[in-house]
Amino acid sequence: MLVIRTVLFAILLIIPIAEIAVFLTVGSIIGVLPTLLIIVLTAILGAALLKRQGLSAFAKLQEDVRAGRVPTAAIGETITVAIAGMLLLTPGFITDTIGFLLFVPSVRSWLWKQISGSVQIHSAGGTTGGMGPGGGPRRTGGPPPVIDLESSEVRPDPTTPWREEQR
């Protein structure tokens, strides 16, 4: 845990310092106003890309869920697109470069291949999602059972903190 904190601290310290250095360098070459204009334009372009690709990734996620598949890859893609959008909305040339790279599907695919072996998703129905033999999501078991009860078949728990009388 200490290693993670140290790495995170270093990243949070190094990236802003590197961004300032790049700002100063680019600003001295092309001027302050063009530098600021580039930063604003990348933020606008990033927001547009986030909306377009984010909706597409979310649609894939919903499609997998509706089809009864564990959406492991779709979750990874949705998270990656969200991170890319945040990086593009953060002012800076380094974060913009990383953000734009994460919007490229082949880069996302390569990144997913790098981390997919260590990612596993557990659903409430006991389904485990990881990468199956064909590179797609792996699913074990069937759909969770449906329990249909009438209101007369349910007895409230008198010890629950959610009772109406206690509100």
Rank of each mutant, 00 (worst) to 15 (best):
G85A: 04
A57S: 12
I4V: 11
P145R: 12
V40L: 14
V65N: 07
L102M: 14
G85I: 03
R138Q: 09
E150Y: 01
A57L: 06
P145G: 07
M86K: 01
E77C: 02
I75C: 08
G99M: 01
S152L: 06
A57V: 12
R108D: 07
V146H: 04
P71F: 09
D148Y: 04
L8T: 13
V3T: 10
R52F: 03
P16G: 09
S56T: 14
L111W: 10
A73Q: 15
G130F: 01
E165Y: 08
R163C: 03
F23I: 03
I83L: 14
I121F: 10
D64S: 13
I121L: 14
R138L: 11
Q53M: 11
T90G: 07
S116Q: 15
G129A: 08
M86W: 05
A84Q: 00
I79A: 15
V104N: 03
G92N: 06
T80P: 02
G46S: 12
K51R: 14
T35K: 12
L55M: 04
I29Q: 10
G92E: 08
V22N: 06
A47C: 07
T80I: 11
I75N: 14
V32K: 09
I29F: 14
K60W: 04
I115Q: 09
T97D: 01
S56D: 14
L102F: 11
T97W: 05
V32C: 00
L49R: 05
L12W: 04
K51C: 03
T160K: 04
P144V: 10
I30S: 07
I14N: 03
S106R: 02
M131P: 00
F103I: 00
S118A: 13
I83D: 03
I83M: 06
A124Y: 04
I147M: 08
G46T: 12
L88F: 00
E165S: 14
T72P: 00
T95V: 13
A59F: 04
G99H: 00
E19I: 12
F9W: 11
V26H: 01
R69P: 02
M131E: 15
P144G: 07
F9E: 05
L33H: 08
K51I: 06
I30F: 13
G99D: 02
I29W: 12
G31K: 08
R52M: 08
P71G: 09
E150D: 14
I17F: 12
G54F: 05
L41F: 13
V40D: 06
T80R: 00
F100N: 00
E150K: 12
G125E: 14
G85D: 05
I83T: 11
T160V: 09
I83E: 06
R163Y: 06
L55K: 14
I44S: 01
F100P: 00
Q120G: 03
D64C: 10
G76T: 05
V22G: 01
S106T: 13
I4N: 07
I14C: 10
H122M: 05
L61G: 08
R139M: 09
G129W: 02
E19L: 05
G117F: 02
T160F: 07
D96M: 09
V65G: 06
G125T: 13
G68N: 08
V104L: 11
E164S: 11
F9G: 07
V7F: 08
S123I: 03
R167P: 02
V40Y: 08
I11C: 10
R5M: 04
A73P: 06
I17L: 15
D64V: 07
V104D: 03
G54I: 12
L33G: 02
P145C: 05
